[in-house]
Structures are given as structure tokens and as C-alpha cells.
Design a protein around this nucleic acid. Sequence first.
DNA 1: CTAGTTGCAAAGAGTTTGCATGGCG
DNA 2: CGCCATGCAAACTCTTTGCAACTAG
Lengths: 142, 142
Amino acid sequence: MKQNRPTRYTTSQGKQILEYLASLGDTHVTAYEIVRHFAAAEVVIGQTTVYRHLERLAAEGKIRKYLLSDGRSACYQYISGSTDCREHFHLKCEQCGALIHVACTQLDQMQGHLRNKHDFQINLLKTTLYGTCGNCLTADKA
Amino acid sequence: MKQNRPTRYTTSQGKQILEYLASLGDTHVTAYEIVRHFAAAEVVIGQTTVYRHLERLAAEGKIRKYLLSDGRSACYQYISGSTDCREHFHLKCEQCGALIHVACTQLDQMQGHLRNKHDFQINLLKTTLYGTCGNCLTADKA
DNA sequence: CTAGTTGCAAAGAGTTTGCATGGCG
DNA sequence: CGCCATGCAAACTCTTTGCAACTAG
């Protein structure tokens, strides 16, 4: 079995989309917002192209795809190169949107546990744990 | 402040939808699956009616609505006293789409660990762990 | 009888696909 | 020059809305 790896062309559109995502840091955007961003900058990038790049970048692990709470549209977020997101869990705060990276032996154990006892190989790149972060927990009580 | 609570009629359709959901136990179904179920049983219940009942039942807390993280469609699940999906994890197989409920002390420990050590209150209802299930792992090797 | 309900069809929102043209290597 | 990428428009999927007929209370 050989990897199906077609040649990749570096296009202006692909570069601009990735650069835009990178420039946003940990802020997430929807596909539509990306389209609008380039339209406003008088750069024509079709929505088809945006979707195709987002899909590819997500598959490559360069960006992360999330769901907005309404479930209707997805949003995307750049993954900075400094940390390897395949090796730890991601916690997403539903209140403030913060994305927290957690590398911890306890969580590693859970991964092994799922594999051994539940026969399930977890994909950390795709998996995000949703909940409420410490800051927002405190704020709720106040 | 007065509740806007219009009179409620008990209709055959509403009763059948709730009964169907209850009969499924902790299995999730999409709106479309419900429509098909009744169509197959030669019971005509329009999709509009299904959606309207699902929305109402979810608002009343009788069923739970949640979005599969692929974001395409919503799933609904009856809330019974015995099984509570707030208390266990959901594993979603990326290969075959199977949704697996896992209630396990190891996972409970992780929930506590996140709460205590990482100051994060996980929302199990929203959280789905992605990966590959046992069947598909075996199939991949074959 | 009155007001909530139903179901068809059509509208919406977000995303994907078909296909001819354009551009990277 | 070959092959991937692009972008327009149309198709698709899931969900909501308009509206006239229907029915529980």
C-alpha cells in the first residue's frame, strides 16, 4: 500500500488562506468569514477554494475544525507549530472559546485504557473535549 | 413575568414520536431517521411535525439534542432515569460512524482529574472522542 | 367553536460537486 | 506541457417557514 500523495502546487490562494489563519492566532473563523475577508480585500478567492483548502489543512493537522454551538456551521483555527497537537488533548471552553492544550500522564493513561479495555484507538488530532474552563467557572459563580 | 404557556393538545403524532424515542433507550436518532421510521410503518408524520416536536421535547428536557461533531445533522435521544449520557463518554468511530457509549470508572477518574488538576469542567454531553473502533482496526489490518 | 397542530411545498443556510479554464512545476 | 487548482453555478443536505386544512378540548 502506497501513500496516495499527489503533487502539491503552492498557489497564491492556498498561501493566503493559511497566512490569514496563522495571522489570527487562536481566534477561530468560519469559512464564510474567510471568504468575506478576501472579498473585502478585493482578492477573489472562491468559496469552493476556501472549503477545499480548509478541508485539506484540517486533514493535515495544520488547522483545527470546530463546531459552533448552533451546529450549523464549522469554524477553523490555526494550530501553531510550536506544539505538536497529536500528542495531547484539547479542551475547548464553551463559554469563552479558549483552547487549552493538555499533555498529562493521566490523560495518556486514558488513551491506553481506551485502547486496551475498550478496543478503541483515539485520534487526538480530531478529538476535542468540550466544557468550561476555570476562568469561566469562577465567573459563573460571581 | 408570566410564562407564555399556550394550551397543549395531545396529538397522536406527538405521542407516537415520544414513544418511539423512549423505545430506543439510549440510542441516538436523527430527525430524518424518525421520519423514515414512521414512513416505514405506514404512519404519515411530516418532517415538519417531527422537527417541531423534537424542538419542543428538547426545550422541555424530555429529550436531549446534540450535534455530532461532523456538524451535519443533529441527533436526539430520550432521557430516561436509568441511563444518563451526562455520565459517560461517547466514542465515535471515524471509519464506520458507530457511536459507542462508555461508562467506566477510569473515565470518571479522568473527569475528576480534569476538574481538580486542570480546573476544567468537562461537558460530556458535547464531548465526543474520535478514533477508530475495534472492528475497523481489525478490518484495516486485514 | 377556538386555538393549537399538521403536512405539503418552498425557502434558507451551509457545504459539496461538475466542469471548463487557469496556473504551477 | 501535464496535471493539479480554481471558481462559477448548480446540486445537495438538513432545517425552518408560510399557509390552508384539520382536530383536540
